[in-house]
């Protein structure tokens, strides 16, 4: 009895030392920057520079948030970012789902060439494409409108999304659609009614990837937008000057920026994991 008790105790200690403790340390390491961002946004500018470091403000204040929305007009870039990210996600998902379906279901000339070409597109450094894209946007009168960003982002997100969805679609047996078509469904109907529900986790995962890419992008956004079409990353960078940083405002902006992504993850996490791993391992 005593032996079992000791054994149980040892096992518990072992678990605490080698499982819970490392997990806890890892979580602290992972979550501390978020905690610090939140706490900084609640501090006054004096408290931020105070020594010794203040780990929690004596009287947390929402002044930074108030300032961001009332004086800095943060809602405006927030609206722009949301519009751009949602539109990019819808366009990219529609195009890449259809393209991935074609690449996985039809055998046509140049199929492999195009798939390789899609990969090549993502290998170019963004900076190289900046000026040509800028000139194109100017010529087609899209410069300084949100659509210039939507168009630019889709050029990067569509090829990668096609690869992502193609991997999953190739794993799905042809017989599923064939069975539907034997039962009288047309190809579009078979795709929409039979394949789409199965594809949903992967589409969701791809959608989250596209949304995050367009939500956080800065390099294109700073060049292709003006004050009317500014997005959140550019607006936040305005708070970093050559002689100082408005830490309390930038942290508050950071917290607000993270919220939509967190909400998305909260609802999508289960499907996201299965979607991301789908097509990765061929059985």
């Amino acid at each position: 009895m005593r032996k079992t008790y000791i054994k149980g105790n040892k096992e518990k200690t072992f678990r605490v030392l080698f499982l819970y403790l490392p997990i806890m340390l890892f979580l602290i390491f992972l979550l501390f920057p978020f905690y610090w961002m939140l706490v900084t946004s609640l501090k006054t500018s004096q408290e931020i520079r105070m020594l010794p470091i203040v780990y929690f403000p004596s009287s947390p204040s929402l002044d930074s948030y108030r300032y961001l929305f009332e004086q800095f007009n943060f809602l405006h870039p927030l609206r722009n970012s949301l519009f751009i990210a949602v539109l990019t996600t819808i366009i990219s998902l529609t195009v890449s789902t259809l393209a991935a379906y074609s690449f996985s279901r039809f055998r046509f000339k140049g199929r492999n060439f195009f798939m390789s070409l899609f990969l090549l597109n993502n290998m170019f450094p963004t900076v190289l494409l900046l000026i040509p894209l800028f000139t194109i946007m100017r010529s087609i009168k899209l410069l300084y409108t949100p659509y210039s960003l939507v168009l630019s982002y889709t050029t990067f997100t569509i090829p990668f999304s096609i690869w992502l969805l193609h991997g999953y679609l190739s794993d799905l047996p042809l017989t599923i659609e064939e069975a539907a078509m034997v039962d009288g469904a047309s190809r579009p109907k078979a795709f929409l009614a039979v394949l789409m529900p199965i594809l949903l986790p992967c589409i969701l995962a791809t959608g989250v990837y596209i949304f995050m890419q367009s939500w956080n992008e800065y390099t294109f956004a700073v060049l292709f937008t003006n004050e009317k079409s500014r997005t959140v990353p550019v607006a936040l960078k305005m708070l970093v000057g050559s002689f100082g940083v408005q830490w309390e405002l930038i942290s508050a902006g950071g917290v607000i920026t993270v919220i939509p992504v967190c909400i998305m993850f909260f609802f999508a996490q289960k499907r996201l994991v299965s979607g991301l791993t789908a097509g990765a391992v061929k059985g």
């Binding site: 900046l130 000026i131 800028f134 000139t135 946007m137 100017r138 410069l143 300084y144 060049l223």
Partner: peptide
């Protein structure tokens, strides 16, 4: 510089 070279 990029904006100026790009003509916009």
């Amino acid at each position: 510089l990029q904006a100026a070279i790009g003509g916009g």
